[in-house]
Write a protein that binds this DNA or RNA. Structure first.
Lengths: 210, 210
DNA sequence: GTTGTTTATTGAACGCTGTTCATATTCCGC
DNA sequence: GCGGAATATGAACAGCGTTCAATAAACAAC
């Protein structure tokens, strides 16, 4: 049945093309420029054809969110260069901030718009992806790093890895998103803020939980 | 010249009414339900009339942001009940989180939408309001509390109040906004997260800057 | 190769949005 | 009462997401 296959391939090809175009539009002109008619124009189909591949605009946005989250995951994984868990957490923090500043529109889309989008990224997808959603995997990176930290330093013996990871992430997200939505509010450069925050947080966790 | 006054009063009355209605709509049905036609309907005027009182929809949203920020300011000022600076910072943090959860839509509008809105809230308004914008005043509350903390505890002698306030705010914002946009991501209840974060941050600041 | 059926695609339409503007109405000083 | 200014309207424009009857294309069967 090569025919059915070919048709299926054509269909997913078109879907991918639409997705790629959508991402290009979002990155270049912002999420508000991402309209059904615009995507249809770009792939040289009629607006209605988009609905053969996506339930609605929201589904496109959600997919872009997932794609973005995969990228964030890659950024975080580059923290592996360091040997010490604490140092790795520092590198991850800086990479997190770098992702936010280099992919502002994506970051906005995933973390600062309606909760439906976030759910698509963090929710354990229906697919039998055993590794979990990109959001879960990213969060797990932090958790396991804090677990490692607990094991390697006696000062952190009482640390709760999940709690610590949530605190860590929330803090990074606070810096990154404040910079995006209230750019002139934070006078201190983001890198400086992140670096000192990492120090403060680790010192604080050690003092409180240790 | 009673007539001109009356007309002016009528004009500002109508503007206020439109603003009040707009706020009601936003709070009850979300920002997306706030449309020009809807506001016009509610105050029983034609859609075009709105543009006699506001330059555009954005101006309405910005005003709602300012109003919301005034409320946040009130929430923060209730931290005055405590005597100790550190304790006051703790109360303020909890009140901040409470504001975000009780005025989710407003919080979203001010801190999680386009930077123009935030600029209206944080930017030193053109008006000769000597006390500064509500955003600046709110931030100043934190700064002065950290200044007080520095003066009252030898442990915090080297603390930079502005830097500390930024870190503090960013962290609170991180928790509040993550809870809003990725509600199921944070497993730990917000109050718990805020309380432990306050401890961690203060301990961390003491350890690093002290 | 022609037919019949299924699938893919279209283009017009609906109801909504913010915004503008010529028109109409209302009000005020004279 | 009259002229001019302020105020208000309602239709219009261009755009949006989305739906759907009508059409075109692709295929299977004969």
């Amino acid at each position: 049945m090569g025919i059915a296959e070919r048709k299926q391939r054509h269909k997913t090809d078109l879907r991918d093309k639409a997705l790629k175009v959508s991402q290009k539009i979002m990155l270049n002109e912002g999420l508000s420029a991402l309209t059904i008619r615009r995507v249809a124009d770009e792939i040289e189909y009629s607006p209605g054809a988009i609905y053969l591949y996506f339930r609605n605009r929201e589904e496109i946005v959600r997919e872009l969110g997932r794609l973005g989250m995969e990228t964030l995951l890659e950024y975080l994984q580059r923290g592996d260069v360091a040997a010490d868990p604490a140092e790795r957490l520092g590198v991850m923090a800086l990479n997190y901030a770098r992702f936010a500043s280099e992919h502002t529109e994506t970051y906005r889309l995933v973390f600062m718009s309606d909760s439906e989008t976030a759910r698509a990224v963090f929710g354990s997808g229906d697919d039998k992806n055993t590794k979990g959603s990109p959001g879960e995997r990213a969060f797990h990176l932090l958790v396991s790093e804090f677990t490692r930290l607990r094991g390697s330093h006696a000062d952190f013996a009482e640390l709760d890895p999940v709690r610590a990871a949530e605190t860590y992430w929330a803090h990074l997200h606070g810096i990154a998103s404040l910079k995006i939505s209230c750019s002139e509010f934070l006078k201190t450069p983001v890198e400086v803020l992140v670096e000192t925050s990492v120090k403060v947080l680790l010192a604080g966790i050690r003092a409180v939980d240790g």
